[in-house]
Design a protein around this nucleic acid. Structure first.
Lengths: 222, 222
DNA sequence: ATATCCCATATTGTATCCAATGTCCACGTT
DNA sequence: AACGTGGACATTGGATACAATATGGGATAT
């Protein structure tokens, strides 16, 4: 007997769903920085009580995406230019290490998928998609690595700056440059040159940081 | 008017207290790996309802300290040897960067405090204290750095392996070596030699990793 | 004796209700 | 008019009650 088995024990609970949706909305910038998250309002949107919402909010705070104050509620956390730069610096340390570990493990399928995402990235007409495709491209390459904790930390870092990356891809010619650099990284991976790939990746991230700082939203949220 | 003002808005909520206590109990190994966390039991211990307990559990899971399954409850998360090694590798990347940033900023007071902790570490007769003193020593040095996100991530990493470090300090002669290496790092900091300090720190962490792997608890928790 | 099914119990997930606190505006005082 | 005050309302924190699911043991059939 062969079924497409689903692990029912992992069926999403209400709080998980709320968490996932809110996280996505926040990292994509749909809910702007400083915007308050009203428990009642959210509970109504999901047709639940406030209990699962509060658990989702707890997790989001631990995740670093929101700030809460007792009896005052939660607001979407914002980053100063310095803080955003620091997140990029962390990425520039971790992601090259992940990629170096991943390159020897990459299958043909993995590389092909990465190339697809890379192409989709360059040809997509929809700016809102760029952010997703950019992230998917990176994740596909990292997926071959066994450094799962590195990847987890990196994902968290990405969550914090995803909004800014999206904005920066639209402004300036961030798209073009990202596209070129992605291709170079991909080719290094295909050539099996882990060192070159990781160096290119580091420069790619540092370049994105500098580009972001130039166009950073002027209001440094305290 | 000058009062010793307290920020009342930051008074700890029940869920915060529960989170803090559980976190401490877990990272110190007081609650062993795989042990279930019963909501009712914990709620009774704190004389609250299960609601704050559940929020604490949500945060602990996001923090990576426990694993939960729907309708089955939460258990303390354990690390395999490989996973623990990976956490150390991450620390070995981040903490030297923090220290390099911190050295030029260290005040006399900061260095004096670090030296005190270092001494307390070597003279404390209580093995259970070693883990705390070890961590306080590191934190004191890092405190001068402005890389708050790096420090946050590092703290999280420490939380995951704290238990193992404590065990390893007791076994073998981990204490002696840690003491010697701490002193060397401290002296490099006092001399203002950021490069040397960060290199020593990296070796210190990698050494701790190797020592840990030798004595790793034999049951690789899946 | 063994296996299977069913139900009692334990435990988690969620809804509803109450308490505690923050916010804001009307009101009065000067 | 400016300022301080008090109280109504909004919102969050927590407790209790109920629903959904897992677990384990005993009855029954073979």
């Amino acid at each position: 007997m062969k079924l497409k088995a689903v692990d029912i024990s992992r069926t999403a609970s209400a709080s998980t769903i709320v968490f996932d949706v809110l996280r996505k909305a926040i990292i994509e910038g749909e809910i702007p920085e400083g915007a308050p998250l009203r428990q009642d309002e959210i509970a109504n949107m999901f047709n639940t009580s406030r209990i699962p919402v509060r658990e989702a909010i707890s997790r989001l705070e631990e995740h670093g995406l929101i700030k809460t104050q007792r009896y005052k509620g939660a607001v979407v956390a914002g980053l100063s230019a310095d803080e955003a730069a620091e997140v990029f610096d962390l990425r520039a340390l971790l992601e090259p290490a992940i990629l170096r570990d991943a390159v020897p493990e990459m299958s043909k399928e993995c590389l092909a998928e990465a190339r697809n995402h890379c192409m989709a990235f360059s040809t997509s007409p929809n700016p809102m998609e760029w952010g997703n495709l950019n992230r998917v491209f990176h994740k596909t390459l990292y997926g071959a690595s066994n450094l799962r904790y590195f990847i987890e930390v990196t994902d968290n870092a990405m969550d914090r700056v995803d909004r800014y990356i999206r904005a920066q891809l639209v402004m300036s010619n961030g798209m073009e440059r990202a596209e070129i650099e992605h291709l170079a990284i991909l080719e290094a991976c295909e050539a099996g040159d882990a060192d070159r790939a990781s160096l290119l990746l580091r420069d790619h991230i540092q370049g994105a940081k500098l580009s972001l700082l130039e166009h950073f939203p002027n209001a440094p949220t305290s």
